[in-house]
């Protein structure tokens, strides 16, 4: 177990180091996410009341869009100079690659969320913070990233790589997205606490389920 976690962390630090030197993924994600939020605000010409009601939906859709950038990039990165072969030669369980990559992507997405949520709140003069909301964001982004990392490993081997990830990913994460949006909306505007519990249980179940799927199938789909 210890070398497994060590391998996950090694991949995590390696990617963070590369990101610190190149600064290509996070910067792109942030600028893109802010643009999407602006587009939403202008497209709907939202009144303050509607902006408050739409907050959860706008933020989650923005996170989903921005997430595809890092999901696509963090694996194609390894393909650029055939670094993936070296990674596969490493004498560790290949599932560690999956969890390492998922961890990196998760951190990127959380950083993005930590910036766009306050920005949305600030721009629209809303108060969006709550501890429950933090929990929903942690659980929701985790499920999104687990599914996304698995599927981006699939698309890595396709001819039209970057194009297909959203097509494969979005229909599968609809239950997750729905749970996130509903739970966030209940937290922001009040609602039935029992319904909130249902969504939270659903999020936890989704995360566990897709962690298990990744654990089971990842070493079969990573390219030889």
């Amino acid at each position: 177990m210890k070398p497994f976690i060590g391998a996950i962390l090694a991949i995590f630090w390696k990617d963070l180091l590369a990101e610190r030197r190149t600064r290509e993924i996070l910067g792109t994600m942030l600028v893109f996410a802010l643009t999407v939020i602006l587009v939403f605000v202008f497209a709907f010409d939202l009144s303050v009341e509607i902006r408050r009601k739409a907050a959860a939906g706008v933020i989650w859709v923005t996170l989903c869009f921005a997430g595809t950038i890092s999901l696509n990039r963090s694996l194609t990165l390894e393909r650029d100079r055939e670094a993936i072969n070296a990674l596969l030669l490493a004498p560790v369980d290949r599932t560690a690659i999956f969890f390492g990559k998922a961890l990196v992507n998760w951190v990127y997405l959380l950083i993005t969320a930590a910036i766009i949520v306050p920005v949305y709140a600030l721009l629209n003069n809303l108060s969006l913070f709550s501890w429950g909301g933090l929990g929903v964001i942690l659980l929701g982004t985790l499920g999104y990233i687990l599914t996304g990392t698995l599927l981006s490993t699939l698309t890595l081997q396709l001819r039209a790589r970057d194009m297909l990830l959203p097509v494969l990913l979005f229909p599968v994460i609809i239950p997750l997205l729905l749970a996130c949006v509903r739970a966030s909306t209940i937290l922001l505007q009040g609602g039935n606490p029992a319904e909130l519990d249902t969504w939270l249980v659903m999020l936890v179940g989704y995360d566990l389920l897709f962690a298990a799927v990744g654990l089971l199938v990842f070493d079969r789909i990573i390219e030889e």
């Binding site: 229909p171 729905l178 799927v213």
Partner: peptide, 13 residues
């Protein structure tokens, strides 16, 4: 793999 992932998400949806 995708067929399995997709089918898992159907009842959840």
């Amino acid at each position: 793999v995708y067929a399995v992932v997709g089918f898992i998400s159907v009842p959840l949806t």
